[in-house]
Design a protein around this nucleic acid. Structure first.
Lengths: 219, 219
DNA sequence: AAAAATATTTAGATTTGTCTAAAAATATTT
DNA sequence: AAATATTTTTAGACAAATCTAAATATTTTT
């Protein structure tokens, strides 16, 4: 099954969007992929005819088993390349997303598997997201949203909810990285912000929006 | 100047073809790029309007200064990726061309320069071809065609004239690699074949066609 | 449950890169 | 140098992926 870069991008976007909702709407997809709803409808029909999607007009769309398999291959490539860029080429973990977005479309099974081996078969990428193995199996990390942590719990940041430059800028400013350890001090009902203590013992305030974008594992 | 993958492929093909002839014909290009002459004409007009080519209808085409600069960037990327695949991922030097053909279109100046550094700023790729530096300057290796060597000259294989699987298969069979040392024994007028002595002291016969595809430096 | 608002699809146009077939220019042969 | 062959360009068509505008479904509000 050979997909164009556009087709791959749709498959990947549906994969990520359906994580949350189970089913994905036309408008959601259009927003995510920076395209118009009319274009999305066309592509949904096309990918459905290739048996990669389960799609009922007006009712949203999900990946078929085959579609999910392809999505996992793309995610695998994306995350392996991100790991390569950070671990081997010394990119910052916040500047690799766009390049990986291009590299993920290189078609060579052999390349991917050799890259995986070269990197030492990593299980997580620099953002803390799990990397599917060559069978599409990925480690289910039971990471929890920072918002859901109770006061006085210690945790380690292991992934971020989006790759937006705005989020990454804020994290850089607050000196929060993957691997940063923290302890929730207290939570404020008024704005749902929370106070945390970082590695270096200093305390900072985290807004609801920011906490929602941070995933941690308790330690 | 942002070029599509197709546009880049034309620029690259013209670069390689004009090495030999100085100027490139429409049919030559069509054959090289596996497309039809009519398509070539369209693309030549387009790239000319972008000031990357010097093109007179019916008179052939050459790269402009700007076009050559872009071609060198693409060649640089291609050869760096080939080096990466062979040196780091343990690909055979005869199986990297196709993958590099895809990787060479990844657009990130930073990526290329970091890759270059990671590889230790190599001056030649696994096929023995020189790698342009970030300013487009490449080492002029005065390599000579094996056909032109006089009897009793010693030389080292440093590049091959094409990447065709047929050629690579033959070289593998004859155990000729980049870096292989040899000495021309004698040349036969009848079929222009030549007898050479390889590293391990054994003598083999090289056909005119094969000799033409091998470039060596005398030692 | 009708009206209004929103979401989705259809219809038709556009761009890029390709194609075939025919016309025009150039090169080769006689 | 005229006839023939080859090369190149033009003209018009097509597929992929996108768009806008209009039509149709669905959902929400009143």
């Amino acid at each position: 099954m050979y997909l164009s870069i556009s087709e791959e991008n749709y498959i990947k976007a549906i994969f990520h969007l359906q994580e949350a909702d189970g089913t994905v709407s036309t408008n959601q997809l259009a927003a995510n992929i920076h395209t118009k709803p009319a274009s999305v409808t066309d592509m949904l029909k096309k990918l459905t005819s290739k048996r990669l999607l389960l799609y009922k007009p007006y009712q949203g769309v999900r990946l078929s088993t085959e579609g999910r398999k392809l999505a996992l291959e793309i995610v695998r490539k994306h995350r392996l390349w991100e790991s390569f860029l950070v671990d081997k080429l010394q990119f910052g973990w916040d500047e690799v997303h766009e390049v990986a977005e291009e590299l993920e479309h290189i078609r060579s099974k052999k390349l991917v598997d050799k890259l995986d081996q070269f990197l030492g078969n990593p299980k997580f990428d620099p953002h803390g997201d799990p990397i599917p193995d060559s069978n599409g199996v990925m480690q289910a990390i039971r990471q929890v949203n920072l918002l859901d942590l109770k006061p006085h719990t210690k945790a380690e940041v292991c992934s971020v909810g989006s790759q937006s430059p705005e989020l990454l800028e804020l994290l850089k400013h607050k000196q929060i990285l993957i691997g940063t350890r923290l302890e929730v001090q207290c939570k404020f009902e008024f704005d749902h912000s929370l106070e945390i203590e970082l590695d270096g013992n200093f305390k900072i305030n985290i807004s609801q929006q920011l906490a929602q974008a941070l995933f941690v594992k308790t330690i």
